[in-house]
Design a binder for these strands. Structure first.
Lengths: 344, 344
DNA sequence: CTGAAAGCGCTTACAG
DNA sequence: CTGAAAGCGCTTACAG
């Protein structure tokens, strides 16, 4: 089966009627519609996307831009894959397809985004891993392409975004550690300009302040968001004098490397250093002792991201009248055995 | 900047000349070409993909289909992300863009593929996680869409494919364990119909046979390809009488759960059970004791997959004249401390 | 309710 | 070397 022309010839009706029948337009005889649908099914006809796109000016495709640089790959947990499922559960109801656009490691993310937008590959874009100053946001605003950012940015606030509650995480973690007697609490923060690092550190400072503890910048360890980063953070911690009695990690995978480094030094997480991790998941769940971390539903986050995005698109906004433009996604602390009070 | 029309008007030349200049056709005055390129850059013009695709019949996009079902998500390591980088390094040289097409968990993979192909979203497809009988292969062959399968299938052999050397892995692992004195070696195999499970088990049987050891089907543990699966496999092993002295795992992440389950039982990998894992990577690398596993370059694998695919496409085949249609990707054993000889 | 026709943005024979 | 024109496969006013 090639195109709508062949299908129309086969049915001996005009391509206009075929198109209308297929697209569920009301002004089609029900018997005609039935015949068209049946024939399309039988012959395996599906409209060529380029033809539709060119005519309609829309692609019915939503893009999710991710990085594929070494750093992102190293940090690869199931975050995006889990998110995808939630996104698609919303998009599929509108006949929108999700495609993932992995920015090549060598290409500048800003340039890559520009190229994808200019080629009109997608109707809307989901960007992630926002930086403190993120030019992609300005570019998308300027080009009037609907988008939602997964992560806030300091350079713009009036666009649609969804972000994890990094302040809340910092606050819960610090309060809990202080409550069990810790006063010297280190933190492993990203070594890049990614915005979440700033939000997290702000939350950390504020939480310390709330607890009457002075902020000490030497307790902020910069590390990569990977197992390797956690290993590095533990090495840094080992060299501190005096050593903080607790540490809060900002990435799920860091805990794995940190545990390993402590073991190599003959030390034990929980006993020698209280550890609170970030997002709980299979990685941290199988650690011994079990990691105290924060729970969230990736699927539900995906649903919210998708709904937030659609609510900014005129064609879909009516379906989501009450959708907020911004959302800070809560995370719930799940107690493990990795963060008891300090040995006194 | 809207379209080629605007750019042509701006330059006061015809759209045909603009198109030829932009596409590097030889019959364009060099001064004209310079002006066009300059103006396009200045005004940010990039050809609308739908227009090009419709006219040319090609999209200049390659699709990588992945699953996004619970099983795939759970098994999410950085496999696809790492692969992506290698793929793009080849594609970018031909101005081809890679997009990832995540099949929604609820949708049938065969149907999803059909839809994507029928809509003409991509010029070629990379499919992965091939099953023993994989209808996607037949569908793609029948539709004459260029494709490469990452993974073999029993239902077809004459298409392009690249696969990891599961027989070689089984052979190396068994030989090594036997050499250090093991005679009772269990194996954790996937519980699905994924083809690699069959290949791996065939290799396992052959390697046992080579070593004069009888195959015992009760030593084959079926488990999910995740941490949870490894945890489950260890539970199964704990119940065996007599317990095999060694186990070979078919997925990277299984080792994490297996280690955990052993620890819960007061047992130690290496001492109480020799363990050989699959692909080495950050997950297994940080285990204690260090996991014996197999090394490969994901990036190089991506390069080979991309080249294999392009060699099947008439437009790109001339660039890869010597490319084989099939490739079994070797993996090299990296010794850790998880698989010493049995305690006698 | 249906058909004929225009036109979305491009590329590419074809003339000149 | 350049321009004018056709046409890729669709959808959608517009007539009837």
């Amino acid at each position: 089966m090639k195109g709508i022309r062949q299908l129309a010839d086969y049915l001996e009706i005009s391509i206009g009627t075929v198109s209308r029948a297929l697209n569920g337009k009301p002004d089609v005889n029900e018997e005609t519609r039935r015949r068209v649908l049946e024939a399309a099914e039988k012959l395996g006809y599906v409209a060529n996307q380029s033809g539709r796109s060119l005519r309609q000016g829309t692609t019915n495709v939503i893009g999710l831009m991710t990085g594929s640089d070494a750093q992102t790959v190293e940090n690869a947990d199931n975050f995006f894959l889990g998110l995808t499922d939630g996104l698609q559960s919303v998009f599929s109801g509108h006949n929108l397809d999700l495609i993932v656009l992995p920015c090549p490691g060598e290409e500048d993310p800003d340039e890559y985004l520009k190229r994808m937008v200019a080629r009109r590959m997608v109707d809307a874009m989901i960007i992630s891993a926002t930086r403190r100053i993120d030019r992609r946001v300005d570019f998308l605003k300027q080009n009037r392409l609907p988008f939602v950012a997964l992560g806030r940015t300091a350079s713009s606030t009036d666009h649609a975004w969804v972000d994890l509650d990094f302040e809340g995480v910092a606050k819960s973690a610090i309060d809990r550690l202080v409550a069990s007697g810790h006063r010297s609490i280190a933190v492993a923060a990203p070594d890049s300009d990614i915005n979440l690092g700033h939000v997290f550190l702000d939350g950390y400072r504020r939480a310390l302040d709330d607890n009457g503890i002075a902020y000490d910048s030497s307790l902020v360890i910069r590390a990569k968001s990977s197992e390797q980063g956690g290993y590095h953070a533990a090495s840094e911690w080992l060299q501190m004098r005096p050593r903080p009695t607790a540490i809060v990690l900002i990435y799920e995978l860091m805990a794995v490397g940190l545990y390993r480094r402590l073991a190599e030094a003959g030390l034990e997480p929980g006993r020698d250093l209280a550890v609170i991790g970030f997002r709980d998941g299979p990685r941290g769940q199988f650690l011994e002792p079990r990691l105290t971390s924060f729970r969230m539903s990736l699927h539900d986050l995906g649903v919210t991201v998708a709904q937030t995005l659609l609510s900014t698109m005129p064609a879909y906004a009516p379906f989501y009248p009450a959708q907020a433009r911004h959302c800070i996604w809560p995370m719930v602390l799940v107690a493990g055995e990795s963060d008891p009070g300090p040995v006194s």
